[in-house]
Design a protein around this nucleic acid. Structure first.
Lengths: 208, 208
DNA sequence: CGAGAATATAAACAGGATACTCACATTCAT
DNA sequence: ATGAATGTGAGTATCCTGTTTATATTCTCG
């Protein structure tokens, strides 16, 4: 009980101990993210990942017991990243405009390396029974942060949760779509997305 | 030159002539849409489609020369549907609120049968060289309708195109996300989506 | 009715891709 | 220098895929 491993480190066949193997594992995860984003779940094969990582297939199976464990590792890394972005954007008490700006900037950053990874992870890639729980918890915390932000700029406590859902999926939709068209860093698109967020959150509730 | 076939009817091996075969083809396309939506492109195999359609694999190849031709037929049918929805919503000159309501209602309708078909068609499914053109033309007309609507409710002629892009992908994102969670017909979600549209389009341009 | 056309069937094929193992080679820490 | 850690990649076994084809059934129309 002296040393405690921070994270269960996903399901791994063995822990990398030397710097060499740590780099290998990192390369595999990175290459996996790349393949997943580029070829989708259909094109995601362990051999292809190993090749893209510049590593033999045997090395991959030295650390990851199977394909799913690898996907899980990729998922965890990406979700941690996204979560930190929204958490930081929603932290402190800042003007709405600034929140929107930081959110958009961060989200774009999180998607610009592996543009379609997020969607593939959400839509295509399966998960073993254990990762469903992790996935759900991610979604929950994700929404919580959005909800916190919405609540902060809204008097009406009413539809906070639904608003968070709508806002988050709208933002994701725009980012995802822009990523597909290689328009992630078009400045006028960023501006419009920020405006969308501000308009919706600060909206005076048009009667519908 | 007496009788004219309205649409090139996709790439087909032969035209169905009797009522029986027309029904068969329809069943195949419908089953294809179902499989595509349910299993994604990775799980989309001709044998599976034939089985889902309650038809032998041979019948499928009687009308569709190959897998891609089938996807193309599915794509065309779905896109025609979506296009008609947005076109009708943007038609005439109606108040913003009504436009938003009709758009949301129609989009939800177009997605409620095969919830994830749209995304799969856009993201996963490949297309032969010829269908890229059709795809692009669909996207263009799709955006045109959105742009027309935006222009109608906006004085500033400036960012119309970008706004159309942002708006359309935001709406798609919300719908897609709701579909994944089986929340497509939650009324409060519809209400919020309508509000999002109204707030953004009628927004007074918050200084960003 | 009946002949030929249209439509439907499903077994079979050929080929490829896949996840994963294993026996062995190399490099590290001490 | 020795054992542990790490890396290799050809090989295996399995499953699936798209597609053809020879045959059977049903329809159309004179």
């Amino acid at each position: 009980m002296s040393t405690r491993i921070a994270k269960p480190a996903a399901r791994m066949r063995k822990q990398p101990r030397q710097a060499r193997s740590i780099a290998t594992v990192e390369a595999i995860i990175e290459a996996g993210a790349h393949v997943l984003s580029e070829l989708g779940w259909a094109g995601f094969s362990t051999n292809k990942v190993a090749e893209a990582a510049g590593v033999s297939i045997g090395s991959l199976y030295q650390y990851f017991p199977d394909k799913l464990a690898l996907v899980e590792a990729i998922r965890r890394r990406h979700f941690d990243h996204v979560l930190s972005v929204i958490r930081e954007a929603a932290a402190d008490e800042k003007p709405l405009k600034q929140f929107a700006r930081e959110l958009v900037r961060g989200m774009i950053g999180a998607h610009s390396i592996h543009p379609t990874l997020h969607q593939v992870l959400l839509d295509e890639a399966p998960g073993d029974r254990g990762s469903r729980a992790a996935h759900a918890s991610f979604q929950a915390r994700y929404l919580e942060h959005y909800a916190a932000a919405v609540a902060q700029y809204r008097k009406r406590r009413k539809d906070t949760e639904t608003m968070a859902r709508v806002l988050s999926s709208a933002v994701e939709g725009v980012i995802h779509n822009a990523a597909r068209r290689n328009m992630l860093d078009a400045p006028e698109l960023q501006k419009q997305l920020i405006e969308l967020i501000c308009a919706y959150v600060s909206g005076q509730g048009v009667r519908v």
